[in-house]
């Protein structure tokens, strides 16, 4: 009995300590978004704010076009998800289910993006976007985001399409359905769980991406949240409370999405890991 009890403590204590390590910095951030500079750095570093300074949030909204950054991030993320899903879904279907000689080679080709660090294409990409006048439009970031997420999405969809029985297409073609009808009416509804996983994953990626946005977008009106945060940091260095408020607000959507769809996020992660290496 005693041994069982100590065994239990031996597991729960470290597990809880690491929960603290993961979450306390975030809770600390939440607290400091309601504090004054003095409280954050000297009088009340660790605890709950003595007085809740909601005006930090007001200051954040008035000093800073938060809603616009929010809108930009939303447009970019949704756009990236839509194009990534459509392109990779069609391609993976052809690679996984249709009969052609280069199917396997084409699939391997499409997964190269998983192995290449994205920054390597930045310089030529900037030139390309300059040439086509894509710079300073939403497409300036949507195009590279989609291109680089295609590899990941293809891997997930391919794996899903492969698990479906081949009788589906056979009976569909006996019924006289065209390839398009089979794809849109029968196959796409069957891989809805995969579409959900990919969409959430790609959305989180596009919402948080920084380097490409930094290089491609200089127009303040088009900046996404991560760029906006950086701008805020350089403009309002002394107002830590308002800075905290901006960080909290920009974090809420992704945390909510994760809490609602944690299963899908984790599934997508595991399926894609089977390919690398």
């Amino acid at each position: 009995m005693l041994k069982r009890l100590t065994n239990r403590t031996l597991i729960y204590v470290p597990l809880s300590l690491f929960v603290l390590l993961s979450l306390y910095p975030l809770i600390w951030l939440l607290f400091y978004s309601f504090k004054t500079n003095e409280e954050i750095f000297s009088t009340n570093v660790f605890g709950i704010p003595k007085q809740w300074h909601f005006e930090n949030y007001q200051n954040a909204f008035s000093a800073f076009d938060l809603l616009n950054y929010f809108k930009n991030s939303l447009v970019v993320s949704v756009g990236t998800v839509v194009f990534t899903v459509i392109l990779s879904l069609m391609f993976s279907y052809a690679a996984a289910r249709m009969k052609w000689r280069l199917a396997n080679g084409a699939k391997i080709y499409m997964t190269i993006g998983m192995f290449i660090p994205m920054q390597i294409i930045l310089i030529p990409l900037l030139i390309l976007e300059r040439t086509f006048h894509l710079q300073n439009s939403y497409l300036a970031v949507i195009v590279p985001y989609v291109a680089f997420q295609l590899s990941f999405a293809t891997i997930i969809f391919f794996a899903f399409f492969r698990t479906l029985p081949y009788e589906i297409e056979e009976s569909a073609s006996i019924d006289g359905a065209s390839v398009y009808t089979t794809f849109f009416k029968i196959m796409v509804p069957l891989v809805k769980p995969a579409i959900a996983s990919v969409s959430i994953f790609v959305f989180l990626y596009a919402w948080n991406e920084f380097l490409v946005a930094l290089v491609m977008i200089s127009d303040n009106a088009l900046k996404t949240l991560p760029l906006g945060l950086l701008y805020f940091q350089t403009q309002f260095t002394s107002d830590w409370g308002a800075m905290g408020a901006v960080m909290v607000i920009s974090t809420i959507p992704t945390v909510l999405i994760y809490l609602l769809f944690s299963e899908q996020v984790e599934n997508a992660l595991t399926v894609s890991s089977a390919v690398k290496g």
Binding site: F18, V19, S22, L23, P25, L26, L204, W207, N208, F210, L225, P226, L229, L230, M247, S250, T251, T254, V255, I257, Y258, L259, S262, V265, E266
Partner: peptide, 13 residues
């Protein structure tokens, strides 16, 4: 879930 939450935050934040 607790261990995973920081993953979904923006790297800038």
């Amino acid at each position: 879930t607790s261990y995973f939450i920081p993953v979904v935050l923006s790297g800038v934040v």
